[in-house]
Write a protein that binds this DNA or RNA. Structure first.
Length: 639
RNA sequence: GCCGCAGUGGCUCAGUGGUAGAGCACACCCUUGGUAAGGGUGAGGUCGAGAGUUCGAUUCUCUCCUGCGGCACCA
């Protein structure tokens, strides 16, 4: 007999080899119907798996969050079966659960088409209707390899080979179909339910490696209930409405065109936003002890060879050859330029730390398929800075920078921040000893700063380890923005030094950091975060004044001028249109405030204010209205 | 870069092997209307680029460019 402990602490005795299903049945019939799996000492397993020793168990019911993973995983299996039934010459590869759903990668000579998805989905519903049991078998390695080889499933053979020697080769059958799988699964396909949808087709490399074959991936979403599925689909629609590319065009902020792929044409309103960000950041940096500089966009190839960029970053660089045959590269980073400023003249330890900031526009030849609106471009502006300091100052500078970064995100309403620590990449410069030092220094500093971080192995910059600040927007999407890197390599390569107390030359440590990261991307994030409805301080156009009839035009202009004089960006809409029309149009443009002026307002020297997102009208004397807008339009650092 | 899909007036989209249409936007006229689309008239397109098939291509084929969804890469 074995002792089974339940979540409420109750202990019951059962015969050895009893299954989760039997245990559920021993408690109640309804429980045995609802249960889909069991966690044994915290690990989920099949309901049908025998339990052979004392254990803590908890039954997993179909509506539990934990069951969602099984629903999605099983949906992937069913999709694979459906695909093989419909398209016999298709190999199956892997099909994991992902956030919100699942996918399965297939190898097939013919491409799938969008309308195949409906067919596959219909077949999946049939398979689910058959309600076949998921049955686990343990095979020998050879048996599995022979089976899959005979079926022409080359990828599965490779997967069997990759299973560690001490692990069983598990097979799950669902009716006639079977797959190599670690499990666990639901009791039967019927438990998956019908709340799933195939979403899209995509190419994906086998094992995520671009040297490997391109497979065909089908993505699906699956949920426990219809309500959840609908909610998810609704959320996707909402996200689409916020798409910065769509809003950017509608709100006349910027555009792209094919002659400059990946480079932005900023329109007046978009540039106003962009400039507000720079103005804000300039104030924050000045307050933080930074000095602003500006360095050349194009520098001789030789300098990039010296920095190591030519070798390690060359494939991302734009170059140009002048009529006199010199080769220049457009800067992909600002650091080499900043080192030149540091080096220009003798530096004393008394000057350190020196913090040089630049709103530098960098150019990077990004793979064509990576381009994506403002989020991924080929030329972008960084709020880049380099802090030159002594070894002893690293910790304090990292802590300061970290504080500054977090306070900035907070000003923009981002409080859900994750920090990733990326250590040495394969493609790098400098010795392992130097890397040991710089990684330790950065780790030590952020630990002191009290930052929780997760390791991002091998993702550092080629010259040093880095922190990446990932922020989560209003609808739960993550964006990488800030970065903070410790660099012991470039200063040495460039022969930068300062004279220390003892009169000796010392090589400074260089911290690279950006807070917005890319201004372009940050604007994109803000557009999506606010769904285009910017807070007053950022809104490119803050107020529009609309006269109701043309007799009020002169007063409307007076109101507009009062706003302009107070530093508010305001326009007046004198068009021969009804007030309804004007309100609609300016609301679609998400202008934060519409000042409506008619006969009553003109007579009383007031304005009727309608704020974006509300139908309410507030009547205020003009001077008061201007003051309240001015107060609200202050940047967060000026409040 | 790789896989798949797409590219028609400023925007959203319809359509055809015999050189194109709608709505919105735009211009002009009428209308002066209190908080999400008043009415009329008009102008606007070498149907992404190049080549091929054809008597004839925006439509079919190929190549390229750009975009979209992923993958890979990354701020």
């Amino acid at each position: 007999m074995i002792n089974i402990t339940f979540p409420d602490g109750a202990i019951r005795e059962y015969e050895q080899g009893i299954t989760g299903f039997d245990i559920a049945a021993s408690i109640s019939k309804s429980l045995s119907k609802k249960a889909v799996a069991v966690t044994l000492n915290g690990e989920m397993q099949d309901l049908a798996e025998p339990i052979n020793a004392d254990a803590n168990i908890a039954l997993v019911l179909r509506d539990d969050t934990a069951a969602l993973e099984l629903i999605r995983h099983d949906a992937a299996h069913v999709m694979a079966e459906a695909v093989q039934e419909l398209f016999p010459n298709t190999q199956v590869t892997i099909g994991p659960v992902i956030e919100n759903g699942f996918y399965y990668d297939f190898a097939r000579d013919e491409p799938f088409h969008a309308d195949d998805l409906q067919k596959i989905e219909a077949r999946m519903r049939q398979i689910i209707g058959r309600d076949a049991k998921f049955e686990k078998e343990v095979w020998t390695r050879d048996q599995a390899k022979q089976y899959f080889a005979a079926k022409g499933e080359d990828y599965k053979v490779e997967l069997v080979d990759a299973i560690p020697e001490d692990e069983d080769v598990k097979i799950y059958k669902q009716g006639e179909w079977l797959d190599l799988c670690r499990g666990p699964h639901l009791p039967s396909t019927g438990k998956i339910g019908n709340n799933f949808k195939l979403m899209k087709l995509a190419g994906a490399y086998w094992r995520g490696n671009s040297d490997n074959a391109m497979l065909q991936r089908i993505y699906g979403t699956a949920w426990a209930s219809e309500k959840q599925l609908k909610q998810y689909l609704f959320m996707l629609e909402e996200a689409e409405k916020r798409d910065h590319r769509k809003l950017g065009a509608e709100m006349n902020l910027f555009h792209f065109q094919s002659e400059a792929p990946g480079s932005v044409f900023w329109h007046p309103k978009g540039w106003s936003l962009f400039s507000s960000l720079i103005g804000y950041m300039r104030r924050k940096q000045t307050a933080g002890g930074y000095l602003e500089v500006n360095t050349p966009d194009m520098l001789d190839k030789g300098l990039w060879e010296q920095s190591g960029h030519w070798e390690k970053y060359g494939e991302n660089m734009f170059t140009t050859t002048t009529p006199d045959e010199r080769v220049f590269a457009l800067k992909p980073m600002n650091c080499p330029g900043h080192v030149q400023i540091f080096k220009n003249g003798l530096r004393s330890y008394k000057e350190l730390p020196i913090r040089l900031g630049e709103f530098g526009k960098v150019h990077r030849y990004e793979p064509s398929g990576a381009l994506h609106g403002l989020m991924r471009v080929r030329s972008f502006t960084q709020d880049d800075a380099h802090v030159f300091c002594t070894n002893e100052q690293v910790t304090e500078e990292v802590i300061k920078t970290n504080e500054l970064i977090l306070s900035i995100y907070k000003d923009f309403g981002f409080t859900d921040i994750r920090v990733k620590f990326s250590d040495r990449p394969e493609k790098r410069i400098g010795s392992d000893e130097v890397w040991d030092k710089s990684e330790a220094a950065l780790k030590n500093a952020i630990t002191k700063a009290g930052v929780d971080w997760e390791l991002n192995e091998g993702e550092g910059a080629f010259y040093g380890p880095k922190l990446e600040y990932v922020l989560r927007d209003a609808i739960g999407r993550d964006w990488q923005c800030g970065t903070l890197q410790v660099d012991l390599n470039l200063p040495e390569r460039f022969g930068a030094f300062y004279i220390d107390k003892d009169g000796e030359k010392k090589t400074p440590v260089m911290l690279h950091r950006a807070m917005f990261g890319s201004l372009e991307r940050f604007v994109g994030i803000l557009i999506e975060h606010h769904a285009g409805a910017f807070p007053l301080w950022l809104a490119p156009q803050q107020v529009v004044v609309c006269p109701i009839v043309s007799d009020m035009d002169d007063y409307a202009i007076e109101v507009r001028d009062a706003l302009l004089a107070a530093g508010i960006s305001a326009e007046v809409d004198l068009r021969n249109e009804k007030i309804n029309y004007k309100v609609r149009e300016h609301s679609l443009q998400k202008i934060p405030a519409i000042f409506v002026v008619g006969g009553r307002e003109k007579e009383n020297g007031t304005v009727a204010i309608r704020r974006f997102g509300s139908k309410a009208q507030t009547i205020l004397p003009l001077a008061e209205a201007v003051t309240s807008i001015v107060l609200e339009a202050r940047a967060p650092d000026e409040v």
